[in-house]
């Protein structure tokens, strides 16, 4: 009799403490971590690998940038850079930072709620003692936190690597997506937007695989393609006008060309190629009344503001999508 009692309490003792790992996470946070730990860890590990790789590449590039060829002209440095392996290293880095939002949306966002809808475990979790609101909050907050950590780390390191070579990478055209969307706050905003879109797609189609496909399509077509036409719309480029005899104005150091025009005496704008292919360009210009050449460009000092404004726009869309989705999940019938 006493023996059974002893083993009984003994079992309980080992069950309570002993072999079990310490409880670091509790409550809903534990469940969300346990359920999505593979995706969370994969994101964090890939980010760590990417960061390590970029730090390594940065060390290699730094020596080149510090000492490209003592006394060489800027044009020569650009040529050297373009022909070196550094250019492709930057391209790989940019590709990695571009992939992050896609991966976050497809592998973190889409299955986040679609998985629970598909398996029916949403019914299991939301009928425990915690509210659906609480479950949603913890789950979305955890995914957003992982997204934030990964995108901030990758963007910070890439930006740090890219800045000293900003006039060389992509031949200095930082208004292109390959630079503009991969540095500063942009990757973070893109990743969060993709996450929100992934979650929304999952809630909408209730199946993991179709939701992943939808999210990928969004990331690829909307953010990769449509966004190209939208990125610079909110901003006014700076203008330099030259008398026509001096030819096209040069792009100031660090600036990115936006457009070129020819201008007539009344201020009317004509395509920059007007009269370009004529036999007698000067006569043609006189006939058309063209007196000046004009350059529209964005100065490098504008870049920071432009990125923050664009990131703000993307984040506003993110908040809108997330708000609508979460509000709907909270109320919908399961």
């Amino acid at each position: 009799m006493s023996a059974t009692v002893t083993t009984g309490t003994g079992n309980e003792a080992t069950g309570e403490g002993g072999k079990q790992p310490p409880r670091v996470l509790r409550g809903m946070a534990w469940l969300v971590w346990r359920q999505h730990r593979v995706a969370f860890l994969a994101c964090l590990l890939l980010t760590a690998a990417g960061v390590a790789n970029m730090l390594w590449e940065r060390a290699a590039t730094r020596d080149f940038l510090k000492n490209p060829r003592p006394g060489a002209l800027a044009v020569d440095v650009a040529g050297l850079f373009a022909n070196s392996s550094y250019d492709s290293a930057y391209q790989d880095g940019a590709w990695l930072v571009t992939c992050l939002p896609l991966a976050v949306g497809v592998f973190l966002g889409a299955p986040l709620i679609a998985g629970d809808l598909e398996r029916g475990t949403l019914k299991l979790v939301t009928t425990q003692s915690m509210t659906r609101r609480h479950w949603l909050t913890v789950k979305v907050a955890a995914a957003a936190l992982v997204t934030l950590v990964c995108s901030v780390a990758l963007s910070a390191v890439y930006t740090w690597w890219w800045r000293p070579a900003h006039d060389l990478v992509n031949t200095g055209r930082w208004t292109d997506g390959v630079v503009f969307d991969t540095t500063g706050p942009m990757p973070v905003a893109m990743a969060l937007l993709n996450l929100a879109v992934g979650i929304a797609a999952g809630v909408l189609v209730r199946r993991v695989l179709p939701a992943m496909a939808l999210t990928f399509a969004f990331g690829f077509f909307v953010l990769g393609w449509l966004w190209d036409g939208v990125r610079l719309l909110p901003f006014t480029p700076r203008v330099i006008t030259n008398p026509v005899e001096q030819g096209q104005p040069p792009v100031p150091e660090g600036g990115a060309r936006f457009d070129n025009w020819t201008v007539d005496a009344h201020g009317g704008l004509h395509g920059f190629g007007t009269c370009f292919n004529e036999h007698t360009p000067a006569d043609c210009r006189t006939n058309q009344g063209i007196v000046a050449e004009r350059l529209d460009y964005f100065g490098f000092d504008q870049m920071n503001t432009m990125q923050w404004v664009d990131a703000g726009i993307l984040l506003a869309v993110t908040v809108l999508i997330a708000g609508l989705t979460l509000g709907w999940v909270r109320k919908r019938s399961l």
């Binding site: 469940l31 346990r34 979790v125 425990q128 003692s129």
Partner: peptide, 8 residues
């Protein structure tokens, strides 16, 4: 454990 974590 999930039961324990989610139910007071």
């Amino acid at each position: 454990r999930m039961g324990a974590e989610l139910n007071p």
